[in-house]
Design a protein around this nucleic acid. Structure first.
Length: 891
DNA sequence: GAGTTTGAAACT
DNA sequence: CAGTTTCAAACTC
């Protein structure tokens, strides 16, 4: 392979890392730290290459999320139920079908995809989860999956069953391969990259589970991961459907790709995206450790990971919808990792990576809840009505899963992580899931719109059911999905959605960029010459995604192969600027209901969104894409230092935002008490068991069906923030705690509300698992956690704006070290840590700082509309009316 | 496709 | 913190 040589300019650190290559890098403390957190490494270690000798393309442990617009996503999940065992492998595409399970019992499965085999392998060890790798090929996709191990059932040989087809045929008896099996899949087509990377280099996620597995899992557990590529051709449901049956008894993950599929999914459930191809392997592993404890499991699954849990509905039987995710977010994984180590809960293992920013990927994880444990899970996570199956959607954190980001993650990509908010209105529980990661995969800042939309489309809905099956009250997942879908559908325009896999052929390495600067698939490609794609100059790197084959960069280190380097550099950058990888676009206080929901699917709400730092345009008058605000389709704000601003999305206005915010805050305060009460009530209603961690119920996951949704979330957060602040000032009795920090911490979308999950984002609220204890706390506490990822900042003007923090936990951890960071000011290039961070330095991580958002978070929830889009829009209108009015007035 | 312009990121 | 340099995207031809 050709590995670019580190330029002299690159920092010594980087050089060291690079020179050392992954292996040497491991010696570094940083690496160790990361490695501990990150699941990835274990995978690397896995010796699977041999198996893939035939593969042309080098396998990558982590593929860039973006790789193909079509998307690839991978998800790993470990069933929490030990007894279940099965492997499910499914692929929608023919390619998938072609996948070969390990007939030899090696546990490795290859699926030759079209042009070449690309090494995508996952390996699952019993305890472990599978890891998947993808080649960087943009081609369609990939899938993977699974594994399973069962000591009991198991036949390794059964691994063959992993094929989707097999799964279908074998509904419940999974195969059992004895322990671990490796599933591999596909992949990608040949890439140009192949050339670069020696087959040896190809990484496969290997699982050697058998050995490990054997003692570890007595019961049948199955871990199944499904990785699907987005192949439009693929029957959208086929994949899921097939899997589902088997899943009934087993847990599985699904990924769906494809716009069409997304639509189809509506019936089934919601989707989540994960962009990162990177899957935190460790988290998975750890998860399995915890798996015994159902409670723990769900804990881990939900918030902490940034994974959205979704109660899919097995309604129809097995129809489970999948979750779609786009971007992988490493953050989640990272986040998870730390906690996981500490607690089993965190470990829960779901990992998913999705990749394609553009194409809608859906990942679903289904865990059957048949066992007692399942019941627990059901309680916590959600139980389908029947509780027979539990679908969990996992979103990966944005970020880096890669890389890092992420996913913004929704990023824009927000990425990264999705925040889900559950709103209960009038006794009904609705959850909106938001996708987190999408941002990440898509280069958030620039393709914000696309990303968001795509995210939305893909946006996974997470539903969590109560123990009691109350989830029904929410509205079925189907409803949610439908809603989201409808929204999505409304936005057919989304490039991502529409993208056709065919467009992403390896040959198309250099596609002509669209007006948006992306290939038309929603993903951007960089053309870095000197930075090795390790600086923020690189759109890919900045977005927390790996460069893809279609990038024309030179000497690129932003590749899965150099994950360590990427992480290292990223940490360095974050150390300087903790928000460096945060979504650039944040929801500002104002958003009209219409905007939020996006009429007809219009997802974007330029009026409410603002660039985090503001632009500094001098000559472009903010009318060209040189302007980041313009590029993101957002208006300029007082935070911008632009000259002669003529931003069509909203010229810079001074004070307008502030006025709006104040107005909003005032109104919110008026309602705050009431809302708070509602929140509590709602929480209770969800049936969270006191002892149980805040399961998803509380949180809820707020799914963003659309990027707008994210905006809403952030908006709420902002409001909350303002309220808290205001409350403190005005109303002593107000629950706002003395620490603004707490208040600040609100959920974000994947950060993506989408964090990247947030941004438009890509970001969403992340749940931190780091602090297991907190989960057990009162509802209030629970909420606090949900907010962890969201950052609210006050800009220099003291205008609150919310950022979703897609940053991977790892990175966050690193950022923690950075205490001293200056406060971020829109006007200033260097962003300081969030307000709360300053106060909460002591907290474990930046994420930790976020954890504390409390009561306010709940309040925010009420504002969210219920499941159906229409309803949501209505609700939003109600809640945000004032804001919108203000906005309009301000304008 | 090459060259220029632009503004963010990085550096001093 | 301000100013300068570097960089890569956006844009123009």
């Amino acid at each position: 392979m050709d590995s670019p040589e580190p330029s002299s300019k690159i920092t010594a650190t980087i050089n060291n890392t690079l020179s050392s290559d992954p292996v040497p890098a491991q010696d570094s403390p940083v690496f160790n730290y990361i490695s501990n957190l990150s699941p990835i490494q274990p995978v690397k270690g896995a010796p699977i290459v041999q198996d893939f000798s035939g593969l042309n393309s080098p396998p990558l442990l982590l593929t860039s999320p973006r790789i193909n617009t079509h998307s690839r996503s991978s998800l790993l999940k470990r069933s929490q139920f030990p007894k279940l065992s099965t492997e499910v492998f499914s692929g929608k595409n023919e390619d998938y079908n072609n996948a070969i399970t390990d007939s030899d019992g090696t546990g490795v499965v290859f699926s030759p995809l079209r042009s070449g085999l690309s090494p995508f392998v996952q390996k699952v060890s019993d305890n472990n989860i599978s890891v998947h790798e993808q080649s960087g090929t943009p081609i369609r996709c990939v899938e993977f999956l699974v594994d399973v191990s069962n000591s009991e059932s198991g036949n390794p040989s059964n691994s063959n069953n992993t094929s989707p087809e097999v799964a279908d045929s074998i509904p419940q008896s999974p195969n059992s391969a004895e322990d671990s099996k490796v599933s591999v899949v596909n992949i990608a087509s040949k890439d140009e990259r192949k050339d670069e990377i020696p087959e040896d280099a190809a990484r496969v996620v290997v699982e050697q589970a058998e050995e490990d597995n054997k003692g570890k899992f007595p019961s049948n557990q199955k871990y199944t991961g499904v990785y699907s590529t987005s192949d439009p051709d693929l029957p959208s449901h086929g994949f899921c459907t097939k899997i589902v049956p088997s899943l009934a008894a087993h847990s599985s993950l699904h990924y769906h790709y494809g716009d069409q599929q997304m639509a189809q999914l509506s019936t089934a459930g919601h989707t989540m995206l994960d962009e990162a191809s990177n899957i935190p392997i460790k988290s998975l592993e750890t998860a399995h450790d915890c798996r015994d404890d159902s409670d723990k499991i769900r804990m881990s699954i939900a918030p902490d990971e940034g994974i959205a849990l979704h109660d899919s509905q097995t309604k129809a039987g097995q129809h489970q919808s999948g979750i779609s995710r786009r971007c992988l977010q490493f953050e989640d994984a990272q986040q998870k990792m730390a906690p996981a180590s500490s607690s089993s809960q965190n470990a829960s293992g779901i990992v998913s990576c999705s990749i394609q920013p553009v194409s809608p990927a859906v990942i679903e994880v289904v865990e059957p809840v048949s066992s007692n444990r399942s019941s627990k899970l059901t309680q916590l996570v959600s139980s389908s009505v029947n509780s027979e199956s539990l679908n969990v959607k996992v979103s990966k954190p944005s970020g880096i899963g890669l890389h890092l980001n992420s996913i913004v993650n929704g990023m824009e990509a927000g990425s990264g992580v999705t925040v889900s908010v559950k709103s209960i209105q009038r006794g009904n529980l609705s959850i909106r899931g938001k996708k987190l990661t999408s941002m990440m995969s898509c280069h958030p800042s620039k393709n914000l719109k696309n990303c968001l939309i795509s995210s939305n489309v893909v946006g996974s809905n997470l539903t969590i059911g109560d123990n009691d099956g109350k989830h029904e009250s929410y509205g079925s997942d189907a409803e949610i999905v439908a809603a989201s879908l409808s929204l999505n559908n409304a936005k057919p325009l989304n490039d991502t959605v529409l993208l056709k896999p065919t467009e992403h052929t390896p040959s198309n390495k250099r596609k002509k960029k669209t007006l948006d600067g992306n290939d038309g698939d929603g993903c951007k490609r960089c053309n870095c010459k000197k930075t090795k794609c390790l600086k923020l100059y690189c759109d890919c790197f900045a977005a927390g995604v790996y460069c893809v084959d279609s990038c024309t960069c030179q000497g690129c280190f932003n590749r899965p192969e150099y994950e360590d380097t990427v992480l290292d550099v990223r940490q360095q950058i974050q150390s300087r600027n903790p928000l460096a990888f945060a979504p650039k676009i944040v929801q500002h206080s104002t958003s009209s209901p219409a905007n939020i929901l996006g009429e007809g699917g219009a997802s974007f709400t330029p009026s409410s969104a603002r660039h985090k730092r503001g632009c500094n345009c001098k000559k472009s008058m903010c009318l060209k894409k040189y302007c980041e605000c313009y590029q993101a389709n957002v208006g300029c704000s007082s935070g911008c230092r632009c000259e002669g601003c003529k931003n069509v999305f909203g010229p810079k206005e001074e004070c307008g935002i502030d006025l709006v915010n104040k107005h909003c805050i005032t109104e919110r305060l008026e309602r705050s008490v009431e809302e708070e009460v509602e929140m509590v009530t709602a929480t209770t209603a969800y049936g969270l068991s006191p002892g149980s961690p805040r399961s998803s119920n509380n949180h809820d996951i707020h799914q963003e069906t659309t990027g707008d949704m994210l905006d809403l979330v952030t908006f709420d957060h902002e409001l909350n923030y303002g309220n808290a602040k205001l409350a403190n000032e005005i109303s002593p009795g107000f629950h706002v705690t003395g620490n603004m920090d707490d208040i600040l911490a609100l959920p974000k979308s994947q950060d993506w509300a989408s964090n990247s999950g947030g941004q438009l984002i890509p970001q969403t609220v992340h749940f931190q698992s780091t602090d297991p204890l907190s989960w057990h706390n009162s509802p209030m506490t629970q909420f606090d956690r949900s907010g962890m990822n969201t950052l609210e900042l006050l800009d220099s003007d003291k205008k609150p704006y919310v950022m979703e923090d897609d940053t991977p936990e790892i990175l966050k951890a690193s950022s923690i070290l950075q205490i001293g960071v200056k406060v971020n000011s829109p006007n200033k290039k260097r962003v300081s840590p969030p307000y709360r961070h300053l106060n909460e330095i002591g907290s474990s991580s930046s994420g930790g700082g976020l954890k504390t958002g409390r009561k306010f978070i709940l309040r925010a929830v009420p504002s969210f509309p219920p499941l159906s889009p229409c309803i949501q829009s209505k609700d939003v209108a109600v809640h945000s009316t004032n804001n919108s009015e203000k906005d309009s007035s301000s304008k």
